[in-house]
Write a protein that binds this DNA or RNA. Structure first.
Lengths: 191, 191
DNA sequence: ATCATTTCTTAACTTAAGTGAACGAGCTAT
DNA sequence: ATAGCTCGTTCACTTAAGTTAAGAAATGAT
């Protein structure tokens, strides 16, 4: 499982054995169970989460209703907003499948970056890439209807539709569960 | 105007005079006129754009229709997706006011980063921060109705509503110009 | 100053999403 | 096994956005 992490990192920088060992000494790997909550609204954390296996989701509690806004699956990760601006978190992060995560905290990465400055380069490339990608995703969302978004998701991340409950998918698509149900029925009719 | 750039940079790293001079020697500052197109669909560029004064917008041409997805005003900037993944651009970038921009290109920043590695640190902090902010913006967009989005924009970026044409604002809000018109009339009624 | 174009608004109509309620299927815990 | 939940779907109704068209207002070009 560690190899998957190194494989991912190698897309951005190359690591010596020494550097790999430094990383392995940091107790990065964590198993979490379906339903485990990694971060709650109002909490603070300096942790970042990277998914090696499984799926985590981000959701808000808005007037007692859960609104899911993001899923992270294999080889995807997030640094919560609150870890960057040192606020309390506005959202929850929880685990929707038994998962294996790399959990790294900010102090840790400051240490690592001191020892191996090229980690900064990786983090920079990675976050620039993710930023550009997020912008494209946002653009696609803005410029399409709920039905187009669903069809788009079906193309791009068919796994999500399988592994994620409908009502969570619905808010991810910016609509209510009933509307998603109806929209799917409508698509089936058309075929 | 250069001071505004240094002031911005100083939020992330501190610069020596030598470093400032190196930056100034790079011919970074450009004046552009309202309507000037900085990037077209299908083009490639390695340039990044940072707005010192004025406003630029990102828009797509989808079935002959312009869909505006982003605005960048004072002290905001973007690195186009195509500059990161070396593709042809999917979108246009143009100037909606006479503006003063910092235009930096990728080769240039590689040079600068070699000389002054702390620029990498700045870029990293900056893009991590922007990524987290973009995610929050996206979340807000997903979890609110067009009307809420408009009211939200009115709070957070009242300047945009003044300086940007309605039909561009509309697609920025994910709706048609007619719907924006109607929605604004509805809000006025309620008051 | 005038003409042409673009932009914004309004209106009538269509389509789709939101809302509230009901029902059955599947899970969970006891 | 069953009682209690959650989840997904369906329905009827409401509300708002999309569409098409028309006209007024603002802008730009000659």
């Amino acid at each position: 499982m560690q190899d998957k992490l190194f494989e991912f990192i190698s897309k951005y920088i190359s690591l010596t054995e020494e550097e790999k060992n430094t990383l392995l000494s940091l107790d990065l790997f964590h198993s979490v169970k379906k339903g485990d909550v990694l971060l709650k609204e109002g909490q603070k954390t300096l942790n970042s989460f990277f998914v090696l296996k499984g799926c985590i989701r981000v959701y808000y509690n808005i007037n007692g209703e859960e609104k899911t806004t993001a899923f992270y699956t294999e080889m995807e990760g997030l640094t919560p907003h609150c870890a960057i601006n040192k606020n309390q978190s506005e959202y929850y992060i929880s685990c929707i499948e038994d998962s294996i995560l790399v959990v790294s905290n900010d102090n840790m990465s400051i240490e690592v970056n001191k020892k191996f400055p090229k980690f900064d380069i990786m983090c920079r490339k990675l976050s620039e890439e993710l930023l550009a990608k997020k912008q494209i995703d946002f653009d696609e969302f803005k410029t399409s209807s709920p039905e187009q978004r669903y069809l788009n998701l079906l193309q791009k991340r068919p796994d999500l539709i399988q592994r994620v409950p409908q009502h969570q998918l619905a808010s991810y698509l910016g609509i209510k569960p009933q509307s998603l149900s109806r929209l799917r029925a409508r698509i089936l009719e058309k075929k």
